[in-house]
């Protein structure tokens, strides 16, 4: 008799950004890199290119046990450095201004994290941010510094997933 069957726990990688806006395309670039190397990730991991709207990405935090969120962050003079931490850590040290949440179009990563927290449910979330060099509209390429950070970003994501595998 089959008493219970637990569905396998899935993990999601959500890549945010606009591929046409220079370093804002970090998320989409990562998604493409991961898609080109399907063996880079365990079989239970799905990668989503979610664009710029965090409100839509909220649905992708359902049906998974763990979510890794990847986005570019504002230029601060050290382009390519990577910040890695929990969603709670980020929210505690990153002032998310309500202006970002004023319309559905502008509701990005900050909105997504706050919305998920306010719903009080969902998966464990880890955030990876890569500092941008510049925001260049209508420029479909990453800056050299951000491009160079991609291998380390992928390695950190793989390590994070492996740690979770052990757990």
């Amino acid at each position: 008799m089959l008493l219970a069957q637990h569905p396998p726990l899935k993990r999601h990688i959500l890549c945010l950004g606009n591929a046409l806006h220079g370093d804002d395309g970090l998320g989409p670039a990562l998604a493409r890199a991961l898609a080109a190397s399907p063996r880079a990730l365990p079989a239970d991991v799905s990668v989503f290119e979610v664009g710029t709207r965090g409100l839509d990405a909220l649905a992708l935090l359902e049906g998974c046990s763990r979510a890794l969120l990847v986005d570019a962050s504002q230029a601060r003079g050290q382009a390519g450095r990577i910040w890695q931490g929990s969603a709670a850590q980020l929210l505690s040290q990153w002032q998310v201004v309500l202006g970002e949440t004023a319309t559905a179009h502008g509701a990005g990563l900050g909105f997504l994290l706050r919305a998920a927290a306010s719903l009080g449910e969902g998966p464990d979330m880890e955030v990876f941010l890569v500092e941008a060099q510049q925001h260049r509209a209508f420029w479909p390429a990453l800056s050299p510094a951000v491009e160079a950070a991609l291998p380390e970003l992928i390695a950190r994501i793989q390590a994070s997933l492996e740690r979770a595998d052990v757990v």
Binding site: T52, S73, Q74, Q78, R81, W94, H105, L129, H135
Partner: peptide
């Protein structure tokens, strides 16, 4: 309002004005 529909592009400056660093 949906100016994004009408003019069709969102400035990434709006989206990337935050930093944890």
């Amino acid at each position: 309002p949906c100016l994004v529909c009408t003019v069709h592009m969102m400035s990434s400056d709006q989206r990337l004005r935050f930093s944890p660093f």
